[in-house]
Computed example of a mutant assay.
Amino acid sequence: MAVNNFKIQILSRAKLEVDEAANYYESESKELGKLFYLEFKSYRKTLESIPFFEEKYETIRTLPLKKFPYTIHFKVDESKKIVFILALTSNYQDPNTTRIK
């Protein structure tokens, strides 16, 4: 079975959200921010080969992290083979206040 390698593009807002979450965890416990970032990086790598997770909001798909209460929100452009990471949201965040549009 051939691996479909998709290019990953992370919106600047999503990068900021990843940094904010990593900084929060690092402030809670030494090395925890690094563990958060490594898990996010692992899931980003998964999206390079398997981006077809749950479609939640019309064309926006979601992928929850396993060890941390966050979800990656993304779109897939199949023809260009690009995954656009739009946001990283806390699972405790009120879905009515999310910045995803």
Rank of each mutant, 00 (worst) to 15 (best):
N96K: 10
K67W: 10
E54L: 15
K66L: 15
A87C: 05
L47Q: 05
I60F: 11
I60C: 05
E54Y: 08
S42R: 14
K30D: 14
Y57P: 01
S27W: 11
L32E: 08
K15H: 14
L86P: 01
L86Q: 10
T46Q: 10
Y37R: 09
S42V: 06
L47C: 14
L16I: 01
F84K: 00
Y37N: 05
H73K: 02
P69V: 04
E55M: 12
T97C: 00
F74S: 03
P64S: 15
E58L: 08
T46E: 00
I60M: 06
L63A: 08
L35Y: 07
G33I: 10
L88Y: 02
R44M: 04
F84Q: 07
K75W: 00
F68Y: 13
Y25M: 09
V76T: 03
E26D: 07
L65W: 11
I50W: 13
E20N: 10
E48S: 08
T59I: 11
D94L: 11
Q93G: 00
I50K: 14
K30A: 13
I50T: 12
T71V: 12
T89C: 07
D19L: 11
S42A: 12
S27A: 12
E58A: 10
L16E: 14
D94Q: 07
I50D: 09
S49P: 10
E20F: 10
S79A: 14
E26R: 03
G33K: 09
Y70I: 09
D77C: 02
L38M: 05
K15C: 11
T89G: 02
T71S: 02
K15I: 09
N91S: 14
K15E: 04
F52M: 07
I60S: 13
N91G: 12
L32M: 15
L65T: 02
A21T: 09
E55H: 10
D94S: 12
Y37Q: 15
H73N: 04
S42N: 10
A22G: 13
E26Y: 04
L88N: 01
S79E: 04
S42K: 12
G33Q: 07
T97A: 01
L35I: 07
K67I: 06
F36V: 05
E48H: 08
L38W: 09
E28K: 01
A22H: 10
E31C: 04
L88A: 01
E28W: 03
A87V: 03
V83H: 10
K56C: 09
S79N: 08
E26K: 00
E55R: 12
E39F: 04
I72H: 01
K41N: 13
K81H: 07
D94V: 07
F52R: 10
I82P: 03
R61H: 15
V83C: 12
E58I: 03
E39I: 01
E78R: 15
L88C: 07
T62G: 01
K81P: 01
T46Y: 09
N91P: 09
A22V: 06
Y24Q: 02
